[in-house]
Design a protein around this nucleic acid. Structure first.
Lengths: 168, 168
DNA sequence: CAAAACCGCTTGCGATTTGCAAGCAGTTGT
DNA sequence: ACAACTGCTTGCAAATCGCAAGCGGTTTTG
């Protein structure tokens, strides 16, 4: 029945896939930062992931079904990493973790503005975001309003505000 | 500003505390299994945590503020581990992870019945559960209905059903 | 009241994982 | 032609994990 797992508990099985320091970071960057290539994920990571670990996590996430890798037609070496429905369905998990982190941990304002919007928007916003991710990653029809654009704009505004304040 | 952390992102900071294979398992057993002593957590763990890892995780979770440790008046060696508000506030995270795991991973019925009820009940049920946890762990006044009793009863029924089916 | 069971937790140790730096073969832009 | 860039690998030291055994002390049992 169970191959190598520890138990059939949903929390445990989720941890066996996502319970490490990097997997959710990679998924976060793909989901919220729309980073689709290896180098993008490697160099634009705020946390500075190492290349061997990134390679390993991408491979694992593809094997486990959260990501899909396709070739980039415009560049023979590039691969494109896309979220699957399984990956897209993590939006509520990110929202819950973001809310919790924002409340209890020393987050910076610019890094938590998206979590704040996700929390305020609630389930309807998450659903819109997931629809948009299906458009971006799975070729589904695009929704009318872009949640991601709103999140990204708010983030950039927060960065600009901080830089203006630092310059003053 | 930031001492040893990697970034001020709420997701990252959450992962720096909970991003391993065991921390959430321990919290889950305390929260849903009402296990309050070291030995209870050690021997009743479905996943079979090792004693040194359990000791380390308990220490870390106390240091980070998710658990509190008090002496057991009835037994000079026993400590009692209690959830803090920070730990109790993880209920929505567990609910989101449980829903996701239940949908995409090979969970067993008896181990996922609680996740199913938590999903069906939604935010109002989570709030009731958190109130109950505040009563159990923080000495707050107990709510009228016990969510935990409902979850536990459903779990036991599922176990009994499986055992009856196996015996047949 | 002595033996047995139980208490939280530690120690030793081999296996695995992590994190860092360097590098590689192939592709692309200049 | 050449430099820059592509995804990804390798070597290696350090940290962590997972298992088994055990420790001093407390409580229960016969």
């Amino acid at each position: 029945m169970r191959e190598t797992g520890r138990s059939g508990c949903p929390i445990n099985l989720t941890l066996e896939i996502l319970g490490d320091r990097w997997s959710l970071i990679v998924l976060r960057d793909i989901m919220f930062g729309n980073r689709r290539h290896f180098r993008e994920l490697l160099t634009k990571s705020d946390e500075g992931i190492a290349s061997n670990i990134l390679a390993d996590r991408l491979k694992r996430l593809v094997e486990r079904g959260l990501l899909a890798r396709t070739d980039d037609a415009s560049h023979k070496q590039k691969g494109i990493y896309s979220l699957t429905e399984m990956g897209i369905a993590l939006v509520p998990v990110f929202a819950a973790m973001g809310s919790w982190g924002r409340r209890f941990l020393p987050v910076t304002e610019e890094m938590s503005i998206r979590a704040e919007l996700l929390e305020q928007g609630g389930a309807p916003l998450w659903e819109g975001f997931m629809q948009e991710l299906r458009a971006l990653h799975l070729g589904a029809p695009a929704p009318e309003v872009s949640v991601l654009a709103g999140l990204t704009a708010a983030y950039r505004e927060a960065v600009a505000r901080r830089e203006a304040a630092n310059a003053a």
